[in-house]
C-alpha cells in the first residue's frame, strides 16, 4: 500500500489509548495505536488473547469511546461524538459482522439484509434488488426467504456480510467471522468478504485469531499487550512469517 502524505484515509486512528481501572491499577487495553486504512484495503488485526484487538475493534465500530486519541472515519472523529452521533455513524458509515448471533432471528435472509436499508430509510425497489443480487452473489439465491434458524453457520455469516455491505458503508468490520465455521467454509467466507471489499472499494478490518485467514488480506496488524507491535504489508511476508509462526 502506498501511504503517501497527501492520501486521505477512509479510517485513521491517532495515538488511541483505552484504559480501564481495576483493583490492581490502570489497565492499558489499547496503548497508543495509530493506524491508517484506505478505501479498498482489507486489513487483519491479529494478536494473542488479551492483546487489545477486540477493544480496538469496538472503538473503530463506534461502540466504545477511547480514553484519548482520535478515530477519524471519513474525516469525522468518532472519539468526540455523543451517543446519538455514534449510533448514526454505525448506521450510515459502518458495516459490522460478529462472531455469532449475527442475524435477527425472526427476519428472513433477505429481510436481514434489507434491514440496514430500512434503518437508513433507503429501502426502495433498487435497494431490494441489490439485496437479492448480493445474496445471490454470496451463493444464497435459494436461501433468500429462509430464517436464520434454517441456515448453516456459514450461510448465516454470508448473510451478515451482505448486511454489512448493502448500505455502502465506508468501513466494514468483522469480528472473528470464521470462529464457528469449519476450515473450508471459513476460507470461502473470508475469500468472498475480501473480494467484495476490494470490488466495492470499502475499507475492511477483520479481527481473527486464525492466521490462515490472513491469506486474503492486504495487510496484517499485530497487536500485543495493547500496542501495535508490527505491520506486515507484503503478501509473501504475511504468508511466510505469519503462517510459519504457527509452528
Amino acid at each position: 500500500m502506498n501511504n503517501s502524505e497527501q492520501k486521505t484515509y477512509a479510517l485513521e486512528t491517532k495515538t488511541v489509548i483505552k484504559t480501564y481501572q481495576s483493583d490492581s491499577g490502570t489497565i492499558h487495553a489499547v496503548d497508543d495505536v495509530s493506524i491508517q486504512i484506505s478505501s479498498g484495503e482489507f486489513v487483519a488485526l491479529v494478536g494473542p488473547s488479551g492483546s487489545g484487538k477486540t477493544t480496538m475493534l469496538s472503538m473503530l465500530a463506534a461502540l466504545l469511546q477511547p480514553t484519548s486519541g482520535k478515530i477519524l472515519l471519513d474525516g469525522q472523529d468518532l472519539a468526540t461524538m455523543d451517543d446519538r452521533q455514534r449510533v448514526t455513524m454505525r448506521r450510515e458509515k459502518i458495516g459490522f459482522t460478529f462472531q455469532a448471533n449475527n442475524l435477527v432471528p425472526y427476519l428472513s435472509a433477505v429481510e436481514n439484509v434489507e434491514l440496514m436499508l430500512r434503518l437508513n430509510d433507503k429501502l426502495d425497489k433498487t435497494g431490494k434488488l441489490r439485496a437479492r443480487e448480493l445474496l445471490a452473489r454470496l451463493g444464497l439465491a435459494e436461501r433468500m426467504n429462509n430464517l436464520p434458524g434454517q441456515m448453516s453457520g456459514g450461510q448465516q455469516q454470508r448473510v451478515a456480510i451482505a448486511r454489512a455491505l448493502i448500505h455502502n458503508p465506508s468501513l466494514v468490520l468483522a469480528d472473528e467471522p470464521t470462529a464457528s465455521l469449519d476450515t473450508e467454509r471459513a476460507y470461502q467466507v473470508v475469500q468472498t468478504f475480501a473480494g467484495l471489499i476490494h470490488e466495492q472499494n470499502r475499507a475492511g478490518i477483520m479481527v481473527t485469531h486464525d492466521l490462515r485467514m490472513c491469506e486474503f488480506v492486504d495487510r496484517v496488524l499485530l497487536m500485543q499487550d495493547g500496542k501495535l507491535v508490527r505491520t506486515y504489508d507484503n503478501h509473501d511476508e504475511i504468508m511466510n512469517e505469519l503462517i510459519s509462526a504457527r509452528h
Partner: peptide, 10 residues
C-alpha cells in the same frame, strides 16, 4: 439480538 440491532445502528 437487541445488542446486534443497536450495534448496526438501531
Amino acid at each position: 439480538q437487541i445488542g446486534v440491532l443497536k450495534a448496526i445502528g438501531a
